[in-house]
């Protein structure tokens, strides 16, 4: 019973932590939209704009990846840790 509760709590926590994925999604979408605008305005700078955009997207993704790591920790590491304590 306690095992099941711990597993369930960890799974729910992982799911909640992935709300953090919303932020990078919005941010990256905004960045890509702006990049498209920039390319539309100056098509000759497409290469530079694209590489800068990918760079920015990767950096903006960091928070999402932190939440992903938290989710992974909750799924893969936390249950073993807590169940071992029982």
């Amino acid at each position: 019973m306690e095992r099941a509760i711990i597993m369930a709590a960890c799974a729910i926590g992982a799911g909640i932590s992935m709300f953090g994925g919303i932020g990078p999604g919005i941010g990256e979408g905004y960045a890509v939209g702006k990049a498209c605008e920039a390319i539309g305005r100056q098509p000759e700078t497409k290469g530079d704009v694209t590489s800068t955009m990918l760079m920015g997207c990767a950096v903006a993704e960091t928070t999402g990846l932190y939440s992903l790591i938290i989710a992974m920790l909750l799924i893969f590491v936390a249950p073993g840790l807590f169940i071992g304590r029982l």
Partner: peptide, 10 residues
């Protein structure tokens, strides 16, 4: 089957 590391381990 050989034993494996945890997925997230250091």
């Amino acid at each position: 089957m050989p034993e494996s590391l945890e997925f997230l381990s250091l």
